[in-house]
Simulated scan of single mutants.
Amino acid sequence: MSESTSLRDQFLISMPHLDDRHFSRSLTYICDHSEYGAMGIIINRPAGMLVHDLFAHIELDYSRIAIDPMPVFKGGPIHPDRGFVLHRDDGRRWLSSHAISQEIRLTTSMDILEAMALGKGPKDCLVALGYAGWSPGQLEQEICDNTWLSCPANSDIMFRLPAEERLQAAAASLGVNLQLMTAHAGHA
């Protein structure tokens, strides 16, 4: 797969007819896409807990700073017990961090959470539990089956908009209003 056909650093917008408890009305940020498959983080599905709840659960002391209420997201159905932090690259390096683009990194090491608990983490970030994954060729087939739209990722949508506005904002970047689309799949 060439760099030009990769969906890395793209948004996947679920089509209205997608009836799946994990992916219905989801916006997924694709972190990796190659001949080996694809991996992404759902960025618009809050998990019902806040980051400071996660800190308390993993016994990180966050009492020295005031933490804005930031939701933890359900990143996908695979390894929902594993944490991921999507963030803008601010030049700092974390123990286990992967550059997705020049602007965005995915970090899985505890040091970033420790820094966040001290108020020294990345300014723009998103914490998720679990991820979405596709086997080789699966995502390409789902796109051919009209399950997903894709568009270039936008970090302002990812980090600045409320979760409930992200899906429609990504679709609008393509000139699409999902509310005007039918919930029934079809092929012309």
Rank of each mutant, 00 (worst) to 15 (best):
S6A: 14
H57K: 15
N146T: 08
H52V: 15
M49H: 04
L106W: 00
H187R: 09
L149R: 13
Q102N: 13
L95Q: 14
T108N: 06
Y36F: 14
I157G: 03
F73K: 01
S2Y: 10
G75A: 04
S4F: 07
Q102M: 04
V176R: 03
D90P: 11
D90L: 10
C151P: 05
H79P: 00
T28M: 04
T147Q: 07
V127F: 13
A170E: 00
L118P: 03
G133N: 05
A172F: 12
R25Y: 05
M49V: 13
W148P: 00
R88D: 09
A153V: 03
G91S: 02
V176Y: 09
R82L: 12
A188C: 03
R92E: 15
P69V: 10
L149K: 07
I104M: 15
N146C: 10
D20E: 11
D61Q: 12
D61S: 13
Y36P: 00
P16A: 09
P71C: 02
M110P: 03
G130Q: 13
L18G: 09
P46N: 12
A56P: 00
L7Y: 12
I30G: 02
A188I: 08
F73V: 09
L95M: 14
A188H: 13
G119I: 05
E59N: 15
L113D: 10
G75Y: 00
T5I: 11
M181H: 09
